[in-house]
Design a protein around this nucleic acid. Structure first.
Length: 493
RNA sequence: GGCGCGUUAUCCAAGAGGCUAGGAGCCGGUCUGCAAAACCGUUAACGUCGGUUCGAAUCCGACACGCGCCUCCA
């Protein structure tokens, strides 16, 4: 089976055929750096991170470009508010973005260009557009004439008439058509500017992506991604600019991720209902957030809530607990050479072997179907159950059993490298979750240990009443006791 | 107003004309002095009304509800 991707341009899943066999060029719209990133940005980042990883996993030589928009009205406004210059703001939030993405475990793109480093390329495209009659200068600005591009709005599947029926488009005197958009904006006093044939000014929002993608990926490339909210106007305008300037197809496959919702409503700056990545990571670890995002298809909306994150954490805990158990069995054991293995497996072992054999084919099948991570996770969870069952039923580890367990462990590492999961050692991850919860209790570990000792004494004296009292007391404080043959340990509930 | 998307069991969520998705939870079992934790097992569903079909959650139509885009937004 070949990789199939949903292409916004055609509205269908299509078999992915790269422009150059074995290579894939991918451009994803990054962020405008004027504030901290929210969970919506995290989702976009993770979705395309997984697409990038999966393309590499299946053998493509991928060039992944993700830009920073470091000049824009919002950055200038922010700078004015703080009484500083645009560069200070941009640099500060570029750094914050890098920190956030690193904490989320995103692989570094091949190139991360900044708009302001590509002013020359931007001006040159605008000149071409003016020369070809697709753009016109007007009072220091340059606008794109949308009526000169027949394919305008082909990505969002609309017409100019329909768009204007919305009647929310401001008619500016500088524009010939209300839908025309700025390629170059003349600078007002006090604003940052660059020299251009049309006077001092700065680029409009959309043109930078045309310039940077052309610079690093060429006039036509394979995949362009971003959030659904970029379909119009941003990506529509990119198509108009690039195709009119270059006279060839701009992008072969357009991929768009769905929103993160709060109470079924889009999370956005303008609605004010957003959580920053930093806030969320104080409460949940990055892989929990990742599992949450992977649990739904990337094009569907997902509802961000504590309940959903808690469920994701429980699910991840289930996998990590299994991996920890596998690691424990494997610790210090050397595996026999394949040929020496001759014993037969138990029923549970045969079932697990079946899961192991099917693992990669099923995983790949799910991912090939437009990156269906939710289905891919199902494969992992089924394997967890098979492994747990096998561990529970296997009293004595034969060389063959060990080899089977080692295979399972390896498969999780392999799938994890594509999904960006299991980057931490299982024992360490479980410990991390435990200590994070421990920060929220109002009883000291010493006090807990003292009560546990008292309870152990009572129990050995068959004074179960006192023992249970202590257990209930601790439970009321959120401390869960775990009795085992090796003694009693505790957990924060 | 125009255009588009969605509605799957208690909740989250995949699937897509006949073939166990999965997770969280509930319940049952193993373990335990009793529990808890852990593990195992198990349950249940396709918004409403019509139509196509041997067969529809899946295709078609209408309706209801929710959401998105049409303005900066991942």
């Amino acid at each position: 089976m070949a990789l199939r991707v949903y292409n916004t341009l055609t509205g269908e899943k299509e078999i992915f055929v790269p422009l150059i066999p074995g290579k894939a060029g991918m451009y994803v719209c990054g962020v405008t750096v004027y504030d901290y990133c929210h969970i919506g940005h995290a989702r976009a980042g993770m979705v395309f991170d997984i697409i990038y990883r999966y393309l590499k996993y299946t053998g493509y030589d991928v060039t992944y470009v993700r830009n920073y928009t470091d000049i824009d009205d919002k950055i200038i406004n922010r700078a004015n508010q703080e009484g500083t210059d645009y560069r200070t703001i941009a640099d500060r939030y570029i750094q914050a973005f890098d920190e956030d993405m690193a904490r989320l475990g995103l692989a570094k793109p091949t190139v991360e260009p900044k708009a302001t480093d590509h002013i020359g390329g931007i001006i040159s495209i605008i000149e071409t557009l003016v020369a070809k009659g697709h753009a016109y200068a007007s009072d220091g600005d340059v606008y794109y004439a949308v009526e000169t591009f027949p394919g305008y709005l082909k990505l969002s599947g609309r017409t100019l008439e329909e768009m204007q029926a919305g009647a929310r488009v401001e008619v500016g005197d500088k524009k010939r058509h209300p839908m025309d958009f700025a390629l170059w904006k003349g600078s007002k006093p006090g604003e940052p500017w660059w020299q251009s044939p049309w006077g001092n000014g700065r680029p409009g929002w959309h043109i930078e992506c045309s310039a940077m993608s052309m610079e690093f990926l060429g006039r036509t490339f394979d995949i362009h991604g971003g959030g659904k909210d970029l379909v119009f106007p941003h990506h529509e305008n990119e198509i108009a600019q690039s195709e009119a300037a270059n006279g060839c197809q701009f992008v072969r496959y357009w991929l768009h991720n769905g929103f993160v919702n709060i109470n079924s409503e889009k999370m956005s700056k303008s609605l004010g209902n957003f959580f920053t990545i930093r806030e969320v990571l104080k409460k949940y670890d990055p892989e929990t957030l990742r599992l949450f995002i992977l649990s739904a298809h990337y094009r569907s909306p997902i509802d961000f809530s504590d309940q959903n994150l808690d469920e994701a954490q429980s699910g991840l805990e289930r996998i990590y607990s299994c991996l920890a158990a596998l690691d424990e069995v494997l610790a210090g054991k050397s595996l026999p050479p394949e040929a020496a293995v001759r014993e037969t497996l138990s029923q549970a072992g045969l079932e697990l072997q079946e899961k192991v054999d099917q693992f990669i084919p099923r995983f790949v099948e799910a991912m090939d179907d437009d990156f269906n991570t939710a289905q891919a996770l199902g494969v992992l969870f089924e394997t967890v159950r098979g492994a747990n069952r096998f561990l529970a039923e296997t009293k004595e580890m034969t060389p063959l059993s060990l080899s089977l367990i080692a295979q399972v462990r390896h498969l999780f590492a392999e799938a994890g490298s594509v999904l960006g999961l299991f980057t931490v050692s299982p024992a360490a991850w479980l410990e991390g979750v435990k200590s994070a919860k421990a920060g929220k209790i109002d009883i000291s570990p010493e006090e807990i240990e003292r009560l546990i000792a008292e309870r152990t004494e009572s129990r050995s004296a068959k004074n179960f009443k006192r023992g249970d009292e202590i257990r209930d007391l601790l439970l009321a404080k959120g401390i869960q006791l775990l009795d085992s043959a090796q003694g009693t340990t505790w957990n924060v509930k």
